[in-house]
Design a binder for these strands. Structure first.
Lengths: 122, 122
DNA sequence: GTCATATGTAACCTATAGGTTACATGATTT
DNA sequence: AAATCATGTAACCTATAGGTTACATATGAC
């Protein structure tokens, strides 16, 4: 999982309406766009934008049959993040802070151009 | 954990620089703002804005001694989300999709005012 | 064929994200 | 005391988020 796709997943999850859509699709797999809209007070277009964000983050998939678009939750990205975290932070989850291996490496900083007039802002 | 704080946590995690800061603090607990800045090519102010977002999401805490501000990761919010997900999506994690209980309830939709001229956009 | 329905697209608006430079302030060092 | 250093704040800029209305298109029903 690339860092860009992690960006997309977390950003998509960073909105209560979108998390709610995932809950709805969990309960009504294959439902239509209008079905989802019934749960919201906002316009259909706003919901469709949320669906677009979720689809680009690969958190949902859609399949069109006729004129209706059927929506399904895709649990793979959340599973991948879950697995990654449980391995990477396993010591933290268990509360065993001392077991964490420190492995941060400082990359040489270059910071070319783009101003930097006042050195105190570095 | 309120939905607002979940918003804050996920939004904070939805940025690679901020996730990187968490990794840095995991490896260098108690380091200063300038220490963190050495890992980035952006200005110190940009890093401080990321730190503000992380602190408002409660993902880091800071303690000032003298003129230096010491930064520490706070694992509680991620632990809470992890726990919530492992209970709520436990069937999904294990790949047992059929075990999920459907429990979505449709709230009556009212949608007062604010336009709605074209009914097709509902 | 006509009409209603489900979805898609375009243009617009306002608030926020993420970056910058300039400047201010308190703590250490010399 | 003076200089330096770590941090904080203010003002600004551009791109994106999240919402709206208006319009377009394709499909199902009668």
């Amino acid at each position: 999982m690339t860092t860009d796709s992690m960006d997309a997943v977390f950003q998509a999850l960073g909105n209560a309406s979108r998390r709610r859509i995932l809950d709805i699709l969990k309960g009504l797999p294959g439902c239509s766009v209008n079905d989802v809209c019934r749960y919201f007070d906002t316009s259909r277009i706003a919901v469709m934008k949320h669906l677009r964000v979720l689809e680009q983050a690969n958190l949902i998939v859609s399949q069109k049959t006729g004129r209706t678009r059927h929506l399904y939750q895709n649990t793979v990205p959340i599973q991948m993040i879950h697995e990654r975290w449980t391995t990477e932070y396993s010591a933290l989850w268990a509360g065993r802070l001392t077991e964490i291996k420190y492995r941060v490496e400082a990359k040489p900083k270059i910071r070319t151009g783009k101003g930097k007039r006042d050195g105190r802002n570095r």
